[in-house]
Amino acid sequence: FAEKHKIKFILNGGNISTECVRNPLDYFYYGTDMWQIRDIHGRYGQMQLVNFPFSGILRHKVYLRYFKGVQVVKPLDYIPYIKRDAMRLMSEKFGWQIYARKHFESRFTKFYEGYWLPVKFGFDTRRVQYSSMILTGQMTREEALTDLAQLPYDEKTIAQDFEYISTKLGISVAELQGYLEAPTKSYKDYKNQLYLFSLGARVMQLMGLEERAVKR
Rank of each mutant, 00 (worst) to 15 (best):
D85K: 14
A213C: 02
A149K: 13
Y81M: 10
R22I: 04
R22W: 00
E142N: 02
Y78W: 10
Q71Y: 13
I171G: 05
W116G: 02
F52A: 14
L180R: 00
S55G: 13
L199K: 03
G200S: 08
V62A: 09
T140R: 08
S166L: 04
L64P: 03
W116A: 09
Y27A: 04
Q193D: 15
I57R: 14
Y115I: 09
G208W: 08
S106W: 02
F104Q: 05
G31P: 12
Y195M: 12
P80D: 13
L117N: 06
Y63T: 11
L64E: 15
E175N: 03
A159R: 06
G69C: 10
F111I: 08
S166F: 03
R43S: 03
L145E: 15
L194R: 10
F67S: 08
F197H: 11
Y99H: 14
G95H: 06
T125V: 14
L176V: 09
S91T: 13
P75V: 09
W35T: 09
P118L: 06
R212C: 00
Y115V: 09
L148H: 03
R65V: 15
R212M: 02
I165C: 11
Y179D: 01
V203L: 12
T109M: 12
Y187P: 07
E3L: 10
E105D: 15
R22M: 11
V62G: 00
A201H: 07
Y164E: 07
Y164L: 14
F28Q: 05
V128C: 07
V21I: 13
Q205M: 08
A174D: 14
F94I: 02
P53F: 13
K8V: 05
L194N: 02
T184V: 14
E175T: 14
K68N: 10
A100I: 10
D161L: 11
R107Y: 15
R107C: 10
F197Y: 09
R202G: 15
S132H: 05
T136S: 12
N23H: 15
V214C: 08
F162L: 10
G114K: 09
L199E: 07
E181Y: 01
R126T: 01
N15F: 03
I57H: 09
Y179R: 02
K4L: 05
K215H: 15
L209P: 05
Q71E: 14
M139D: 02
Q205K: 14
R202E: 11
Q97H: 07
K191N: 05
D147P: 03
W35M: 04
K93D: 10
S55L: 15
S186C: 12
E211D: 12
G122W: 07
K188S: 05
R202Y: 13
Y112G: 00
K185G: 00
R22T: 10
D154H: 11
A2L: 13
E113S: 05
S131A: 15
L176H: 06
A201Y: 04
F1E: 13
M34T: 11
A213T: 07
L180T: 00
H60T: 04
A2P: 03
